[in-house]
Each structure stands twice: as structure tokens, then as C-alpha cells.
Design a protein around this nucleic acid. Structure first.
Lengths: 201, 201, 201, 201
DNA sequence: CGATAAGCGAGACGGTACGTCTGGTCTTATC
DNA sequence: GATAAGACCAGACGTACCGTCTCGCTTATCG
């Protein structure tokens, strides 16, 4: 979102912001990520294109802001074990991803290549947030003496997020069993990380 | 690839097929998935656009055919255990994915939504091939009595492919450590599936 | 020219209109009617293709508008006789046609068949304008009692326009003698129409 | 029509020639000059495109050969006067032109610009033939002492052919009155030429 | 309170890619 | 060597979309 010069001039209308978000989601639902047009969003929102581009540098950023930006992710309360914590985190990931349409996730992931700004925003919002949660859980495990030495967060991230992502976007698994898969992913990651940490493999 | 009416008329020239594939890869390497143009491919291949569209219904199918379609995947030789087999499979996935540029994988995954034909082709070539390998490995485990009851292949698929995919395309992990991650994913999946199979959780 | 929704939005720029007209004429002069390309016109005008198609439904209409649409035709001042008037009209036709390149005239005439909209525009601008001039001259002759009864304008039109057109586009006559031919055509038409009017044949 | 190397190999089949002519006319009748496609003609004739291009250098030449090439034009028998002869000639022109569709005439006339070979063929078949007839009629008039000095054939040609052409292709006059117009054109041309010849203007 | 600054909807602008279509040539296998 | 079928190169067509700009207007703040 480009900076807003404060003070002089007419202030931006919040109604416009809301209308854009609502219209973006509506058009996405109707035509999908690939079929979404800025003109269509503007028309559906009853808004000029300039109002959109005053807020978002590109179409992708608009979509990002309307669908993914605000996806909250709460850190799990302290569990009994690393395994329990990781299962909770995986379930959190699943819940978070599930709130955005699959094609939007895939589309944004693709558009990240070739748009560094979007990549930056994606990393800052998504990756950083998820990895912060993970760090906390891993630290707890160290405190609990489950883990002797710190573990690379990115590895843990891939082990946890990957299965959920693949289930939802690649394998096209049954949405009703996403929870089952998240639990399995959490347990799998815990055993792998603990095994690594113990160094017995 | 649209059906070829056999027998009558001038046959398609293999040289053209090759030129298109080579040019597609070259343009992808130079401009990336988003920057690829059919005209650019045609020009680079010294070929008319019609020759391309005679072979591929859309730009995406052309890219698919040039980058992903032929990605071989060999089934691992019989290992000592399910864990060993799954590690080998995960390494196979990593090697297979590594042969295509990341932006191409992401781009195709995105374009699958909204192009059912491409989705079909993707499933038939990619998913089916990988899941066949997985089935074999899982069957072996049943034979070995490691697994008491059969396991849903899609679950295993997500547990194995997900981490590799996430490492390469989302977390942007160090390519040199992709092998490490694949090994971890294999072990993690094995322990999760064995745990499930034993039903002790 | 498609209708312009008035009032709202950014108004069309006259500079663009002019640039398109100028570029169309330049490309026509350089490559001829058959060699003209909309892309070439757009490039020469420094204009997007959309700006052209916003104004003209087809390439032909664009050419029409740039070369033929505005060809003025002044009614001759009252002459001494029908013959004198018709000579003046024929010379007017010759002057009018002479201002557009021959291949353009032939090309547009051909494209009229199969494009009803263009035919309509052609009739409204060209035929109607010329026939209005003719009507006036014929009315004067009736007033002068040269003609006892009104004459079919289309007949007069063919008798006058035909020779000039044929001289310029079919017979490929010497351009320097177009004036001579126009005079002859005027006299010929006058004598034929007067002969008809008198009914002595 | 490209030269035929005689003797060796399989001779051309006349059936193919006929089929091409028939198909050309059929497609012209159905889709018009602008809508005619070589592929369509080949398909309608049950013939390969090569068979067409072996006989005709371009699409236009094919159409020319199928519609206009053979349009006969008989010289009028000796009439009582130049006027009578010219009327006969004009009627001959009208009859000749009437045997080809209007859009074809206009289309070929347009394509002549930019295709010198077609222009050559057109001149040789059409203009030369018509002007030969005209020359003969004008010579007779000199013999009859109606004309003191020879008249430029091209001028006479324009005066006669022009009105007929304009009536049929530009003014879109009633086909049933084409004869009337031809008679008028003949009389008009005669009076103009006689006037010129006498030098009294 | 009047000037200034920025917002607004509408829609034109330059640029560029798409997928289709055609013309004229070339290549098979068959006659 | 002619034939039917059809692939080949080249390149124009008209459409669609992106992100920017311009119009006439409205709405706030600042002097």
C-alpha cells in the first residue's frame, strides 16, 4: 500500500477500501484467479481504476491484500510436548490456508517469481509470521530439553507447511480430512526433528 | 497434444517438435515463465505460430510439454525398510522437481486452476506417476509386515512431496541441502505412517 | 465511428485522431492499400491499436475516414446551360477523386461488398453528396426549360461519374488529360439527357 | 497459367481444371470475393491446394480465370451510324460485365494495383479486347466520313465503359434498366466524339 | 472564507500478447 | 510427374488486459 500523504487534500474514503476488497473477493469467487480483471473489480466495486491503483501497485498486490494479507495465525498455547505443539501449529497452518481459495494461493505463489515487491510482501506477511510461531514452539522444546540443540526453522517450516500445502493444492485431498493430515504432518515433523536432534541417525 | 490424423498428408516434422521444445526452454531460461511469449518461442525456434498451435492447444500446454511432461521418475530399488524406501522416493521427487525451473513449476501449478485440460494432463503425468511409485513402496512395506493395513496413497504423497515442494518453492531453502531435507521428509513420513498403521495413537 | 458516450470519463484526444489520419495516409502512400497494416498505422501514429479500434470498427473504415470521408465537393455556380453545368460537375468529380490515391478508391470499392456498414457509410458520404449536387444542376435545367421532365439522378450520375472513374482507374488514362475527359463526359451526358428529355429518339 | 511441360510424366487431368473452376464459382457465390479462401476452393473441388497453385500463380489469377477470363465480346455488325455502333458496343460491354458477379469485378480491379502480373493479364484480356472492338467501330466511322480524324480509343473507351461500370458497381442501378443506360451511354459518347471530331467546340 | 491539495468515477491512452486465419510453398505416399 | 492431404513459415487480424493519465467534480484542511 503506497504511503498516504497526510494532512492536505481530501482523505481517502474507507468505503472505497471496503468496496474494493469485497469486489475482489466476489470476482475471484466468480471467475477465479486467472479470470480476474482489474476492470471487473473496479466495475463490481463501483469504483474507478485509479482508486484501486492509488492503493495497490499491481493487481497481484490488490488480490494479496484482499485475500491473504490479514490471515491471522495464532501461536498455540504451550502443549505437553514438541509433538503436540507441532500438531497444533500444523493445524493452524491448515486453518489459515483454508481461508483463502486454492487458486488464489497458487496464483500468488506463481506471481511471486518475477515480482520482487510481491515476494517481499509475501515473505514479510506469510513466512515471517509462520516462522515466528515455529521459533517459539521450537524454543519451548529446547526449554523442555526435548531438543538438545536449536533446529533450522526453515527445515521445520518445510516439514510442517509442505504436507498441508501439498494436500490442499497438489494432491487435491479431501478437505474434510485436512485435519487428519495436519496431525500426521505434526507428528512426522516432531519425530524427524527429535531424531535429528538426538543425532541417533 | 491434439490428435494426429494418421496416414494422409505431409507428416509432422520431428525437427519442428524438437525446435519448439528447445526454444521453449531457452526462452524460459531467458525471460522466465511470466515473460515467455508464444511469438518469442516461434521466433527462437524458426517456426510459425501455427506449427505450435497445431501441437499444443495453449501456451501452458506447450510449456508443460517442454519442461515437465518427460520428467522421468524411477522407482527405488527394494530397500531395507519402509523408511529407507521413502527416503529414496523423496530424493527421487527432489531430483525430478529440481530438473524444472522453480517459476515454471509454480506457474503451471497456478494455471492448472482454470484450465481443466491442463489439470487432467498434469494429474495423468505427474501425480499418477509419483503415486504409482509410492504404491509400490507401500505394498512392499505391507509384504514386509511393517504396515498392517494399507495406507491412503494421497496422504503418503502429501507427506513426502509437500516438504520437498515447500523447501524448493516456498521456503526457498538452500538447494545444496535439498537432499538433507528429502531424507528428513522420508524418515518423518515413515514414522508417521508406521505410527498410524500400528494404531497406537 | 462508434458512438461516443458523452460527458463522463476522459475525453478523446484530437491529437490522436489527427495522428491516425496522418499515419494512415503516410502508410498508404508508402505501402499502398493492400500493404497497409493496422499495426503499421498504430506504430507510425505513436498510438495503441485500441485507440484506433475505439474510433473505427474495421481497418477499412479507418482508411475510409482518412482518405475519402472528407472529400469536399462544391456545387458549381449556375452556368449558362445544362451542358456547362454538367461539365463543371464532372470536373468536380475528377478533382474530388483525384485527391485520393487510385488504389485506395479501388480497394474501398471492393471492400464495400461484404461490409454493409462500410457500404452504408460510402453511400451516405459519397453517393448522396454527389447526387445532391447533380439534383441541383438538373433542377436548374428544368427551371431553364432545357429539360421538360425530371431525369433519374442515378442515370445522370452514372453518365457523369462513370467516364471519369474509368479514365482514372480502369483505362489508366493520362492524368493531365483528365480535365479534357471530364469536359467530354459532361457534354456527352448533357446531349444524352437532353435527347432523352425531348423524347426525339 | 504457368507453362505446361509436355510429354513426360502424368498429364494433368481436365477433371481437376473443371472442378477448380466450378468450385471457385460456387465459393464466390456463397461467400463472395472477400470471403473466398483457397482452402475452401480446394475442399469444395476435392482437390489439393498444390493442384491449384500448379495452374494459377495466385488466388486472384484463379478467380480471374474462373470468372472473367473467358468473357467473350463480339464486335457488333456494321450499323447505320457511329451512334448505332457505339450503342451496340455499350450493350456488349454491359452484357459482358453482367456475366460476372459485381463483387468479383470490384475485387479484381482492386487487386490489380499491387500485382503487376494480374494487371498485365487484365489488360491483355479485358482492355485490349474491348479496345479492339472499339477501334473497329471508330475506323468504320472514319470510312463513313462521320469522323474526320481518328479519335483516342482510350477516351472513347472511358466514355462507353464508364457509365456501364458505374451503373452496375457504384450507383447500384436497377439491373433491368442496364440496357437503357447502355443505349444512353452509346448515344452520349457518339455525340461527344462527333462534336470533338468536327472541332466545333 | 477562499485557496490548495488530494480524493473520486469514468474512461481514453500506449503497449503488448493472445489465439485464429490465410496465402503460397513443400513433403509425404499413391497413382 | 500429377494427385489429395496436410504441414510449414510468415505475418495480419481484432480482442483483451495492464497500469497510467486526464477530465470534471467533490471534499477536506490550511491560511
Amino acid at each position: 500500500v503506497p504511503e498516504v500523504s497526510k494532512g492536505a487534500g481530501r482523505p481517502r474514503e474507507e468505503k472505497v477500501d471496503e468496496a474494493i476488497v469485497r469486489a475482489t473477493r466476489a470476482v475471484l469467487a466468480e471467475r477465479g484467479y486467472a479470470g480476474l480483471t482489474v476492470d471487473a473489480v473496479a466495475a463490481a466495486a463501483g469504483v474507478g481504476k485509479a482508486a484501486i491503483y492509488r492503493r495497490h501497485a499491481t493487481k497481484q498486490e490488490m488480490i494479496f491484500a484482499a485475500t491473504v494479507h490479514d490471515l491471522a495465525l495464532e501461536a498455540p498455547s504451550d502443549g505437553a510436548s514438541l509433538a503436540a505443539d507441532l500438531v497444533a501449529v500444523a493445524e493452524g497452518f491448515a486453518e489459515q490456508l483454508g481461508r483463502a481459495p486454492a487458486d488464489v494461493l497458487a496464483g500468488l505463489l506463481a506471481d511471486i517469481y518475477g515480482d520482487p515487491a510481491l515476494a517481499e510482501r509475501f515473505a514479510a506477511t506469510f513466512l515471517v509470521r509462520q516462522q515466528a510461531v515455529l521459533e517459539e514452539v521450537l524454543d519451548r522444546a529446547v526449554g523442555r530439553n526435548e531438543l538438545a540443540q536449536p533446529v533450522d526453522v526453515r527445515v521445520a517450516h518445510a516439514l510442517l507447511l509442505g504436507p498441508v500445502f501439498a494436500w490442499m493444492l497438489i494432491v487435491d485431498g479431501d478437505p474434510d480430512r485436512t485435519g487428519v493430515l495436519a496431525r500426521l504432518a505434526g507428528e512426522a515433523a516432531a519425530s524427524a526433528l527429535l531424531g535429528t536432534g538426538r543425532g541417533d541417525r
